[in-house]
Design a protein around this nucleic acid. Structure first.
Lengths: 209, 209
DNA sequence: ACAAAAAATGAATTTGAATTCATTTCTTTA
DNA sequence: TAAAGAAATGAATTCAAATTCATTTTTTGT
């Protein structure tokens, strides 16, 4: 016996794997999923193309894992805000504002994480993370209803609506090339205001058919 | 001279072109942009693959034209509702409800039209149509503010928010595999309620930083 | 220092789909 | 009905990118 995987090698391997995942993040931040090629990721990670395949079975699984990692982190940030002290209204405002500010700091990445279709494995991973975001908001809305801060409403629908509004308003196609690329602070303030308004309103009676 | 393009031929050509555009619609309804291949479209249109290229310069331009055609139609339907009689509230409710019902009748197509990334030309065409949808809603919201039916608010942001909420709630990933695929009528009613609530609410003072 | 085993490499291969183009079919006019 | 020109065809080509794999480099234990 002349070789055995030592702990040191084990760590180097883990490091390299992590560096590859970070490289995906960096590349996707630049060019989104659409433009992200395995060769580019390899270069960014400082390894050969073939090395990627010694750590991940396919492009789809690599990218899906990278997405799960990043989106999972954002979800826990949002969850932490949701679990903090204060009224449901304030916590919802904060959750939305924090999400908005972080997303705007890296719009391309945020859009890729939350909306941009890619390989099927990536889409599946995003579905999970999206539902996780929605669940956090839904919990917050239900809490607000229970405390009578918001009127009774379908919390599930409202949460989906907020996710959609955030996506569209912050990082969606319409937000991409706004004539005057608005500053992150004021945009996030306006989106937050919209989101609060969206859940707080008194309900309305249907008018015509 | 032994050949000249007669009017009859001209019409046949136009017909074939239209049939190809319709075939794109049909194929995209089934498999979205992701799964739509030129060969499949050709088959659906009953022509050879090469024929597509006698009518359109590239896949991207073909698909972009098909999108512009369909989305343009939906925009004018929404505009017609927006221009009808009644309070701004009622017209907004109707515009949203009509959009929702029509979208749900063909979810895959609707999602492709409004959200699914594809070739760059397609994305560009969608940007236009999306802005057109948003403009209709924005006009309606501004009207509602002017009539004091809605509180003052950033109509542009609110319109983007409504588009996002519609996309997410009706045809977005979360709506795709809802455990019990909810019936179109009740879902559209709930989304409509959310949208009205979203613009009608009294504004809220920011809480913490 | 050497042999055994693993890991990394990157050029070559594979793959899947868009696009082309030589050939065939259809239309028109004389 | 024949020749000229268009239009349609679909198999072959091109192209871009993922994946593979024979070769090289690194690591380990004796």
């Amino acid at each position: 016996m002349a070789y055995r995987r030592t702990e040191r090698v084990q760590e180097q391997l883990q490091d390299k794997r992590d560096r590859i995942l970070q490289a995906v993040r960096a590349v996707v931040s630049e060019v989104g999923f659409r433009g992200a090629q395995v060769a580019t990721v390899a270069e960014a990670a400082g390894v050969a193309t073939g090395t990627i395949y010694r750590h991940f079975p396919s492009k789809g699984e690599l990218f899906a894992e990278a997405l799960a990692l990043n989106a999972g982190h954002e979800v826990s940030v949002m969850q932490a805000v949701a679990d903090s002290e204060g009224t449901a209204t304030a916590r919802l405002a904060d959750a939305v504002r924090v999400f908005a500010l972080r997303a705007m700091r890296a719009r391309r990445l945020a859009w890729a994480m939350i909306a941009e279709p890619a390989e099927p494995e990536v889409d599946a991973a995003r579905l999970k993370s999206r539902r996780a975001f929605a669940d956090v908001l839904q919990g917050l809305i239900e809490d607000g209803i229970a405390r009578a801060e918001f009127p009774p409403q379908n919390a599930r629908i409202a949460a989906a609506g907020l996710i959609g509004a955030l996506t569209e308003g912050l990082i969606g196609p319409l937000a991409q090339d706004a004539e005057a690329p608005p500053n992150a602070l004021s945009l996030s303030r306006e989106i937050t205001a919209f989101c609060l308004q969206a859940v707080s309103a008194r309900p309305y009676e249907e008018s015509r058919s």
